[in-house]
Computed example of a mutant assay.
Amino acid sequence: MRMKLTAAAAIALTAMPMAATADGEVNIYSYRQAYLLEPLLNAFTDETGIKTNVVFARQGLAERLQREGRNSPADIVMTVDISRISELVEKDLVADLNSDTMNKNIPENLRHPDGKWYALTTRGRLIFTSKDRVEEGEISTYEDLADDKWEGRICTRSGKHPYNIALISSMIAHHGEEQTEQWLNDVKDNLARKPQGGDRDQIKAIAEGVCDISIGNSYYYGNMLMDENQRPTAEQVNLVFPNANDRGTHVNISGISLTQSAPNRDNAVKLMEFLSSPSAQRIYAEANSEYPANPNVKPTGLVAEWGEMTPDSLSLQEIANNRNAAVRLVDRVDYDG
Rank of each mutant, 00 (worst) to 15 (best):
282 R>A: 14
301 G>Y: 15
272 M>E: 00
297 V>A: 01
292 P>N: 03
302 L>G: 03
322 N>D: 05
278 P>T: 09
285 A>K: 03
322 N>K: 14
285 A>C: 00
325 A>H: 12
301 G>A: 11
276 S>F: 01
252 N>W: 04
297 V>R: 00
289 S>M: 12
321 N>V: 00
307 G>D: 10
323 R>C: 00
295 P>H: 06
275 L>R: 09
278 P>S: 08
252 N>L: 13
294 N>E: 04
318 E>T: 05
269 V>H: 13
262 A>N: 13
298 K>S: 07
284 Y>T: 05
263 P>N: 14
286 E>H: 08
317 Q>H: 12
253 I>K: 06
302 L>R: 10
281 Q>N: 08
330 V>S: 07
281 Q>L: 02
291 Y>P: 01
281 Q>M: 10
307 G>M: 12
323 R>W: 04
253 I>S: 05
326 A>W: 08
326 A>I: 04
315 S>C: 11
293 A>T: 12
258 L>H: 10
305 E>V: 01
310 T>C: 04
291 Y>D: 01
310 T>K: 12
300 T>P: 05
319 I>P: 06
328 R>Y: 08
316 L>E: 02
287 A>T: 12
311 P>K: 11
289 S>A: 13
278 P>I: 11
289 S>F: 10
276 S>D: 05
300 T>L: 05
304 A>I: 10
253 I>R: 07
277 S>G: 13
281 Q>Y: 04
307 G>A: 11
302 L>E: 00
330 V>E: 09
316 L>F: 07
303 V>A: 00
259 T>N: 12
314 L>E: 02
317 Q>D: 12
